[in-house]
Amino acid sequence: MGVEQRTARLTVLIDPDKKALFEELCARDDQTPSQVVRRLIRDYIEQKLGQPWTPGQTAATVLGRRRGRGG
């Protein structure tokens, strides 16, 4: 899997208790909350696409290709 080169900010509003628990669970796994969220997003994308995603693939290239197959 390639390394992602750019970053973009995503702001998510959650209740403080849920945030604190999430941060504690991440720390127990020696991961940052950002690492876990990035993995969750990547897994969601791959689940929806039904194929692996690699850095550099954009929505236009991936979804355009899918539409071209009749999807």
Rank of each mutant, 00 (worst) to 15 (best):
V12M: 04
L10D: 08
A59Y: 13
F22L: 07
D17N: 07
K19A: 05
A60T: 12
R67C: 10
D43R: 06
L21T: 07
C26Q: 05
P52Y: 04
L63C: 10
T58L: 05
L21K: 09
L63N: 05
R28P: 05
L25Y: 08
W53G: 01
A8N: 07
Q5L: 13
Q57A: 07
D17M: 02
R42N: 03
A27M: 02
V62E: 01
Q31M: 10
V62Y: 00
T11W: 07
L63K: 06
T61M: 13
G70Y: 04
D30K: 15
R28H: 11
L10G: 05
G71A: 14
V37P: 04
V36C: 04
V3W: 09
R6C: 05
R65A: 13
I14A: 07
E46F: 03
D43G: 00
E46R: 02
L25Q: 12
L10C: 09
P55I: 06
D29K: 14
V12D: 01
Q5I: 10
T32I: 03
T7K: 07
L49V: 02
T58D: 11
T32F: 03
R28D: 11
L49R: 06
K48G: 12
A27K: 12
T32P: 04
G2R: 15
R66L: 14
V36W: 04
R66Q: 09
L13P: 08
P33E: 03
V62Q: 00
G71C: 10
G71N: 13
Q35K: 12
K18A: 14
R28A: 15
D30S: 15
G64A: 01
L13G: 13
C26W: 05
R69P: 05
D17F: 03
R69Q: 15
Y44G: 12
S34H: 04
F22R: 01
P33Q: 01
R66W: 06
R9Q: 09
V12K: 01
V37G: 03
Q51V: 14
R65H: 08
L21C: 05
K48W: 08
Q51W: 09
T58V: 08
G50I: 02
G2I: 14
T7V: 07
D43H: 03
R6G: 06
E24Y: 06
L21A: 12
S34D: 08
V12Q: 00
R9W: 03
L40I: 12
G68Y: 05
R28Q: 14
A8L: 13
L40T: 08
Q51A: 15
R65Y: 08
F22D: 02
P55R: 04
T32S: 15
T61L: 10
Q35N: 12
G68M: 10
L49S: 02
T54L: 11
R67P: 02
T11V: 13
C26P: 06
R42I: 09
D15C: 03
L13Y: 11
L21V: 12
P52H: 06
L21Y: 04
Q5A: 10
M1P: 09
W53H: 04
S34N: 12
G64R: 00
E24H: 08
R6V: 06
R39M: 10
R65D: 08
R38S: 13
E4I: 15
R28C: 08
R6L: 08
Q47K: 15
D15F: 02
Q5P: 06
I45Y: 01
W53Q: 00
L25H: 11
K19T: 00
K18D: 13
V37F: 09
V37C: 07
R38H: 11
G50D: 02
I14D: 02
